[in-house]
Simulated assay, not measured.
Amino acid sequence: MRAKFVGLVSSLYIIGSTMAQADEKLAEDFSKSPETRWDYVADTVMGGVSSGQVQFSSEGNVAFARLTGTVSTENNGGFIQFRRKLPDRPDEGVSGVRLLVRGNGEQYFVHLRTRGTVLPWQYYQAEFPTSEEWTKISLPLSGFKASGAMLRAIPVADEITTVGVVA
């Protein structure tokens, strides 16, 4: 199976102790050399054949990351992503992630890695939809699912080390 993806992310927030709380910490607005903070990764690191790229640009006052490519499940593959190591771990009161997104109608994912996700295939995942309009997406930590039985059921905020946007 092959699928083409085009997704845009304009901002990424780490949000406070309740999803409605205004206590948000802007983790990324994709300005000021985001290419120095974000890495592109594809399933080719595991023998897959997906291809793509992340580009950083702006339209008017809005800076964003554009993830484009073709995802293939051949050779046990199936992803493209851009990912950032967090310079500081979030506070223990953090309850989720908020993004401003626009895309081609496909489903995308946020992957969180923690101090407990030691193996390359371990992560916590939450899915979100996209549309042609900029949409604010809120993903509570309780909605992230562990990629395997060896991980805790829900990620612990102050142990999060990386965040990635995945197609």
Rank of each mutant, 00 (worst) to 15 (best):
M46I: 05
Q122H: 06
D39Y: 14
S31W: 03
R37T: 08
R83K: 14
V101P: 00
E35Y: 03
F128V: 07
R66S: 08
D43W: 15
K136C: 08
K25C: 10
V118E: 12
A65L: 00
V62T: 11
V54M: 09
E159S: 02
V49N: 11
G103P: 00
S147C: 14
R37Q: 03
M1S: 09
A63F: 04
A149R: 10
K85E: 02
V41K: 07
N61T: 14
Q107C: 11
P140V: 01
R115Y: 04
G105P: 06
A146C: 04
L67P: 01
V94A: 13
E35K: 06
R66N: 08
G93M: 14
S17P: 06
N76V: 03
F5T: 06
Q81G: 12
G105W: 14
G69N: 13
V156R: 04
E127K: 15
T117C: 03
V118W: 15
L100V: 12
F128N: 05
T18C: 09
E92D: 13
K32G: 12
V94W: 13
T135G: 08
L100Q: 12
M19D: 11
R84Q: 08
I14S: 08
E127P: 13
R83E: 15
P129K: 05
G69C: 10
E35H: 04
G143A: 00
E74Y: 09
A63C: 14
V62G: 03
A126V: 07
N76I: 09
S57D: 13
G48F: 03
A42F: 07
A65D: 00
V118L: 15
R115E: 11
G143V: 05
W38V: 05
G93Y: 13
G148V: 09
G52N: 05
D29T: 02
E106V: 14
W134Y: 09
L86V: 03
E92H: 12
G103M: 15
N75I: 06
G16E: 05
L12K: 01
S142F: 02
T135A: 14
K85Q: 10
G47K: 04
K85L: 15
T114P: 13
E24L: 13
D158E: 08
Y13V: 06
T36G: 07
A27I: 15
S58G: 11
G77E: 01
V9L: 01
M19W: 11
N75C: 05
N75V: 02
R89L: 14
L112F: 03
G7H: 12
E106A: 14
H111D: 07
G78N: 02
Y124I: 00
N104D: 07
L151C: 01
E24V: 13
P140G: 00
P140A: 04
S31F: 04
L99M: 10
I154P: 03
M150Q: 14
V163L: 02
V54H: 12
F64V: 00
F30T: 00
T161H: 05
R37W: 07
S31E: 10
L100M: 15
A157T: 02
D43L: 07
L67V: 07
E132R: 10
R115K: 09
F30W: 07
